[in-house]
Design a protein around this nucleic acid. Structure first.
Lengths: 267, 267
DNA sequence: CTGCGAATGTGCGAATTCGTACACAAGCTA
DNA sequence: TAGCTTGTGTACGAATTCGCACATTCGCAG
């Protein structure tokens, strides 16, 4: 069952990975007229008419490492549909403690406050893996959502998925060890990347998980001893995806299943 | 600043607490025609026309302790607008580990999957504090939402609030000690109760927080030594709300602030 | 009033994580 | 190649939490 979830979610990855051949930097306007050719699953899954509603307002943007897409409590100017790269949603307290609540790659979008009529949110959205994507002005998205119930439904369904993901994060944070939380993080990131290897430092991971840097180093070496990953300076390669999943103990797959149920067309 | 948030959220409590005088048990049909007389803040804040859309389908129900309102992955039959009592939203993993992700009292509703077009969700909704409220069939709510954008907006805004609450839970679970997490729990429950005292066992709290029962006992006695609470067998009384807030360290108030920003009319 | 089950207080060793610190290694720049 | 910055491995005492266990106390039913 776990394997099945994984396969199906991985297949989403496979379907779109090869389409992302847009190497030309900084294309100012949308060139692909075929929505299916866009490597963002949400956009690719829209009906032709829904896509046409968005199309005039969509524009390509690079998502640069560390770029802050949304600042807490500031009005959201754009929603982003990544076609490559990963953004993470960071919750912070008044005391400035931070932790990653969820992540979004090309399977979704960020800027949920727009369809939720909230205008802004207390979350910060940051680009964690470099990539690119399409963005749309908040007002344009709002207008399109008003016109199309089916577009609205798609965007709202993804919010359901994200809620589940965040709740699973809460669950994992209270019940699981650092190696387990780390394994979950690695698997979730890997699902949204093209390759099994990515550039990441222990320091970075410690910030995401909200633990000591040294704790991450220890946990990584534990995982490496089990041959599930391989680490070199500044990079980590996933060797055994399913072994990592098993390590987590049932908290991986819940959000992925919800995504599949609500948003994976076909299959 | 923290105090201000607290006052405003507490004032919501004060506004509606005395209105809940519906002592007659099991009234089968809605008697109050004045929506403002209904002690659920979301319903009370609706426009007259939005409320009339819902009214024919609303019915009073008792919310009995331990009652399961939504089972994970089962189709949602009803949404619930509590007027008294507290429901909690529980996330669980495939390995059956559970933790409370968020709570809802008379300030909101449960059944978010309905406006999100999800039909069901992997969460479990359970009555944690006995009370009563109004429920509406999923199909009726869906129909009403389709007709009224403003009703839809209200329900979606509350989902934003809940997302923030769940994300704060994730943050607290990874950064804070048991006494702090306990303090947060107590404060959040107290905000949704009429009085400062409620019946609760350590065992129950340990399940909600996902820690040992003995850990809760220790944490409670620490809080009691600081004169912030008073415990007797099977019950806990809040003595110093603001001291508890300070203990938590900035993670309380974020969701409450978001609620105030989006949903507290007037003031 | 007595007995019983539920709730609570406490203890103990083990495991985990923390805070902090320091040494080493890798890769870049001059 | 030398030097510097950044990333990583490791250490150690302290604090926290865990798992488990057992004794006590409270409140209700008989």
């Amino acid at each position: 069952m776990c394997a099945k979830l994984n396969i199906s979610f991985a297949s989403i990855r496979a379907q779109t990975a090869e389409r992302h051949d847009a190497r030309a930097p900084n294309r100012p306007k949308l060139m692909d007229t075929q929505r299916a050719a866009i490597a963002n699953n949400l956009l690719a899954g829209l009906s032709e008419s829904d896509f046409l509603l968005l199309k005039p307002a969509l524009e390509w943007v690079d998502l640069n490492l560390g770029e802050i897409l949304h600042q807490p409590r500031e009005k959201l100017e754009f929603a982003y549909f990544p076609t490559a790269g990963i953004c993470s949603i960071i919750a912070e307290s008044a005391a400035a403690t931070k932790a990653e609540a969820g992540i979004v790659g090309r399977e979704g979008y960020i800027g949920w406050a727009i369809p939720l009529h909230a205008g802004s949110s207390p979350f910060q959205s940051v680009v964690q893996m470099q990539g690119r994507g399409l963005r749309i002005a908040a007002s344009a998205l709002q207008e399109a959502v008003r016109k199309s119930p089916s577009l609205s439904a798609t965007l709202l369904k993804f919010i359901q998925v994200v809620m589940v993901q965040i709740a699973q994060t809460a669950l994992v944070n209270s019940h699981n060890t650092i190696p387990q939380r780390l394994a979950r993080w690695l698997v979730m990131y890997r699902d949204r990347m093209d390759g099994p290897e990515f550039a990441i430092t222990h320091e970075f991971l410690s910030n995401m998980l909200g633990v000591r840097r040294a704790g991450v180093s220890e946990a990584l070496s534990k995982l490496e001893m089990k041959k599930t990953i391989r680490t070199t300076r500044g990079r980590i390669a996933i060797l055994d995806h399913s072994a990592l999943e098993k390590l987590i103990g049932g908290s991986y797959g819940v959000a992925e299943n919800e995504y599949r149920r609500l948003l994976s067309q076909g299959t």
